[in-house]
Design a protein around this nucleic acid. Sequence first.
DNA 1: CGTAAACATTGCATAGACTGCAATTATATG
DNA 2: CATATAATTGCAGTCTATGCAATGTTTACG
Lengths: 201, 201
Amino acid sequence: MATNLRERRRRQTSREIQMAAVVVTLRCGYEHTTTEAIASEAGISTRTFFNYYNNKEAAILGETTPPDPAQADWFITSDAPIVDDIAHLLGQVLKDDQVDRNMMRKIMDVIETTPDFLPLFRKRMDDTSLVVSNLLVARFGAAFAAEAQLLAELATHAMIDALQVWAVDDNLVVDDVTTLIREKLHNVGTLLSRGGRGALR
Amino acid sequence: MATNLRERRRRQTSREIQMAAVVVTLRCGYEHTTTEAIASEAGISTRTFFNYYNNKEAAILGETTPPDPAQADWFITSDAPIVDDIAHLLGQVLKDDQVDRNMMRKIMDVIETTPDFLPLFRKRMDDTSLVVSNLLVARFGAAFAAEAQLLAELATHAMIDALQVWAVDDNLVVDDVTTLIREKLHNVGTLLSRGGRGALR
DNA sequence: CGTAAACATTGCATAGACTGCAATTATATG
DNA sequence: CATATAATTGCAGTCTATGCAATGTTTACG
């Protein structure tokens, strides 16, 4: 047999634990969610729970795979507007991650009822943000590394906003997230170069 | 006597505890910093420690006072570039907070040795970010509330970057932070509207 | 196959974070 | 000075999280 049996099971259990964590949190509220309750809901021991996740928050938020810089040479050499390229790159992350809309919706519900989770969700994207930042530096040069980092953070935040929209709207497909990210970034850019009052555009 | 004696003492103890927390963390590393060690360093009981701060992180990072929206009408009606106004607003926050450079330097040291603190430091600014976001909505209209939030987050992140620069450079005064914030925001704006490769400008 | 290495699950013991309560002491106020 | 208000603390108890060692499963390989 392929050595993947273990790996597949691990992934499976990992998702089961996450689902258990989210479900219990939505049922009882985060304050009253104990690791024991999560473990019991997932049908494992609390010790095993901590073999999969370092803490409760991590179990609820799950894991992300940052983009592979080796696959992103196009980003460095592209001549397209930077906003388009960032949006495309982050959209790709979602596709690669095979994000489950049902799970994402539940996660967003948790964030809504427990706002403390929003910063944690952002932190969860830090790896991705770092990769984006490095790609920006590779594209524009090291002189503005600080700004690259700011822009990368901004982009992942825009991605989270877009995910929130996508999660609750069954009419949208994953590719629409790319468009949403682009629009948000574009609008922020417009705001940034504005002077006085009034609506955008 | 004025009823402020208690209040002054409270502030004093509060700062003493923070200093103790930071010092112990820099001495032993965050992993090995116990509430007991902090309390002992500050000359109080661990129970009192938790009367002042909800947790260790909060003790290390201290508190911030967000800008008072009632004092910020000028922001809503200004015709100056938005970047300038945000930078000025955030610079004002620093002045009002009477930020101690020595403390800030130590906090930045903690962040450097324990990168997990950067997200927490950002979270600490969430109140400020919210006020900025509301002011932006008041200035530009509610249609782009989401973008206002993104821009406000970006601005507080830029502020943190600027603080890092200020903390280690005794030649800079608080007003220089305003300039730094403006420059960073301006550069990000420029990046956002760029196409292909090459340095800024 | 069958066996040894690698990995997964679990229980147990333990440290540390944090809370609620009640007692004690200090400060404010009239 | 007497009384309300607030600060400090000890103690008991809950929950998170980790290390360790025992036991059970998979995998790899001769």
